[in-house]
């Protein structure tokens, strides 16, 4: 088990959102304030880790033919647990995220990891994988939230800081409303993925140029 490699894959080179392009519905829908982003990211992290542990523990028992249905039942159970906990302890967050909490069941990140990683690897490795992939998802959400909130409303940390309204960076009438609307979700995610592609291709390009010079 290689913790560093898994962490790097989760955060950068195999990031669930920007590289594997999974789980985009929630990434675009709920990233309107920092509180939402952190809440959603941590919920997914918890569900992903727990379902990873259970699925990899049960991988020798689950018949091959109905494995997808079994995965979904395990995932749905944990989603229900988290959903009820949020409704009980963080009702504001539960209201903000709305239908997207139960929809974590069909979030492709969790099903994708179950199918491609947990079904083939041990419990410990799967748990680490869940945490790493969850962190990868969370940081993208936080970046999207910060950008969209700052440009769209001129605030920072909505939902947590400054009594729920967030700290005002510049007056809201200078803000570009569009960024906080659905359009902004698409455009900001496009820019984040493009930036990611740029930085991931940079070392490759440099290596290629070096090779050409050597020739």
């Amino acid at each position: 088990m290689d913790f560093k490699k898994q962490l790097k894959e989760g955060l950068v080179s195999q990031n669930p959102v920007t590289v594997q392009l999974l789980g985009m519905c929630s990434t675009m829908a709920i990233t309107t304030s920092l509180f939402n982003g952190i809440g959603m990211g941590l919920s997914v992290l918890v569900i992903l880790t727990l379902s990873n542990i259970f699925i990899s523990a049960l991988r020798k028992v689950i018949p091959d033919k109905i494995r997808i249905a079994c995965f979904i039942v395990v995932i749905a159970t944990f989603v229900t647990v988290v959903d009820l906990c949020l409704q009980a302890y963080l009702p504001d967050l539960a209201e903000n995220l709305g239908v997207f909490i139960p929809l974590i069941v069909v979030n492709c990140i969790i099903l994708g990891r179950a199918e491609s990683f947990c079904y083939k690897n041990g419990v410990a490795a799967s748990a680490v994988d869940g945490v790493c992939q969850g962190l990868g998802y969370t940081w993208v959400l936080i970046v999207m939230c910060v950008v969209r909130e700052l440009l769209g409303k001129g605030t920072f940390g909505g939902g947590i800081l400054g009594g729920g309204e967030g700290v005002t960076i510049f007056p809201s009438h200078f803000a570009a409303m569009g960024v906080a609307l659905p359009v902004g979700g698409f455009l900001v995610l496009a820019c984040v993925i493009a930036a990611m592609q740029y930085f991931l291709n940079k070392p490759k390009k440099a290596a290629e140029e070096k090779e050409e010079v050597a020739k």
Binding site: G185, F186, L187, A190, I193, A194, Q197
Partner: peptide, 16 residues
């Protein structure tokens, strides 16, 4: 850097 997926997202954003 925008080739492939990001440019498709931009187009979807304009449709939105």
């Amino acid at each position: 850097s925008f080739e492939g997926f990001p440019i498709a997202l931009v187009a979807a954003g304009l449709l939105a």
